[in-house]
C-alpha cells in the first residue's frame, strides 16, 4: 500500500480522478468486464456504444490507468483479477445485467469483414472450389500465386480445388488478403470481444458464457419428448396427453386387428388391401417367368 501511495503522489489529478472513476464504476455495477475492440473502427465503436447505452457502459481509458485501478482494489475483491486481462486495444464494460446476457449483447455486435495484410487467421481459411464471377484475365495468375488453383471454364474463372490457404493462427499475407477480399471471403470477426468478466466472487471467461441456444432448444425438445414418451408408456392421462393416448390406443388396436388379423369392420379394407399388396409383391417376384401369371396380373405388376 505504501508503494502505491508513494506512486500515486506522482500521478496528476486527472489520472487520479480517472482511476477513482474506474473503481467507483466497479463498485456501483453488478459486473465489470474487459472487452477487446481490436479492429473495430472508431465510428463503429460509437454506434455500438449508442446501441448498448443504458444496458452496458463502455468506458474507454488508458490501460495503465485500468491496471492501477484494479490493483488498488482490496485483496479480497475478485475484480482485481481483471488486471491480468488488460492487454491490447481494450475497453472496460460495466453493467447490471448478468454476465450471460452481457456476453450475448456483445456477441451480437460481431460481424465478419475482409482480412487485411498482417491479420492473424482466427480459424483455418478455406477457399471452396467452384465458379467465380471473374472474367478470364490476370486474376487467374494472381490466384495461382497465392496458392489457389484457378482455371477457366465456360468463359469464367473457376476455383479448381478446395484449398486451405491459411491455418488458424497464421498471418495472412497482403497479397492473399487482397485475393480473399476479391473472392468475398470474410475471415475476420470484428466486434466487441469479451475477454473476461467478474460478477461478485466469480470470474467468467468467454467459454463459460457461450451458451449454445440451438443445443438448448434441442434439450428442451428432448425433455418434452421424454415427458411425452413417459406419458404414452405409463398411460399418464393429462389434458396434454389424453388425445395422443386415445390415438395410441386406436393405432395399437388397429395394428393388432390388422396384423392378427381380427376381422372387424373398421379394418377390413386395410386387411384386404394388405393381402392384395402382399399378393402383388409375390406376383412381382415371378412376373418375368413365363406363364406364371395371367395377363391381368401381369399388367398390374409390370
Amino acid at each position: 500500500m505504501e508503494a502505491e501511495a508513494h506512486h500515486s503522489t506522482h500521478i496528476p489529478q486527472w489520472k487520479k480522478d480517472e482511476i477513482k472513476n474506474i473503481v467507483d464504476n466497479v463498485h456501483s455495477h453488478r459486473i465489470t468486464g474487459i472487452v477487446d475492440v481490436r479492429g473495430v473502427p472508431a465510428s463503429s465503436l460509437q454506434v455500438m456504444r449508442q446501441q448498448l447505452r443504458g444496458i452496458v457502459t463502455l468506458h474507454m481509458t488508458r490501460n495503465t490507468l485500468s491496471n492501477i485501478a484494479f490493483n488498488s482494489l482490496p485483496e479480497d475483491e475478485k475484480a482485481r483479477i481483471l488486471a491480468e486481462h488488460i492487454d491490447g486495444q481494450i475497453v472496460m464494460v460495466y453493467s447490471n445485467e448478468n454476465p450471460f446476457r452481457l456476453y450475448k449483447l456483445l456477441e451480437a455486435t460481431k460481424s465478419k469483414v475482409p482480412a487485411k495484410g498482417g491479420d492473424i487467421a482466427p480459424e483455418d481459411i478455406v477457399v471452396e472450389k467452384g465458379p467465380t464471377s471473374f472474367k478470364p484475365g490476370p486474376i487467374v495468375g494472381e490466384l495461382q500465386q497465392v496458392g489457389i488453383s484457378a482455371g477457366i471454364e465456360g468463359g469464367k474463372v473457376v476455383i479448381k480445388q478446395t484449398k486451405k490457404v491459411v491455418k488458424k493462427g497464421e498471418k495472412i499475407s497482403a497479397k492473399l488478403a487482397e485475393m480473399l477480399g476479391r473472392l468475398d471471403v470474410k475471415p475476420i470477426e470484428v466486434g466487441l470481444n469479451l475477454k473476461a468478466v467478474v460478477e461478485g466472487d466469480t470470474l467468467y471467461m468467454p467459454a463459460d458464457l457461450a451458451v449454445d441456444e440451438v443445443a438448448l432448444k434441442g434439450m428442451f425438445a428432448q425433455a418434452a419428448g421424454h415427458a411425452f414418451n413417459l406419458c404414452m408408456e405409463a398411460g399418464i392421462a393429462t389434458k396434454d396427453t389424453i388425445e395422443p393416448l386415445i390415438q395410441k390406443a386406436t393405432m395399437e388396436s388397429k395394428a393388432l386387428a390388422v396384423n392378427a388379423p381380427i376381422f372387424e369392420k373398421e379394418v377390413m379394407d386395410i386387411i384386404l388391401s394388405k393381402a392384395e399388396v402382399e399378393m402383388l409383391a409375390v406376383a412381382k417376384q415371378v412376373a418375368g417367368k413365363e406363364d406364371a401369371l395371367d395377363e391381368e396380373l401381369k399388367s398390374k405388376v409390370q
Binding site: 399388396v277 402382399e278 409383391a281 409375390v282 406364371a292
Partner: peptide, 23 residues
C-alpha cells in the same frame, strides 16, 4: 400349365421377404 409355371417360378422366391418388403 399355369399352376406348374407358378409353382416353378415361386421356387427360390422368399415369399416372407417379398411380403415384408412390399408392406
Amino acid at each position: 400349365a399355369r399352376v406348374k409355371a407358378l409353382v416353378a417360378a415361386l421356387e427360390g422366391v422368399n415369399i416372407e421377404e417379398a411380403i415384408a418388403k412390399a408392406a
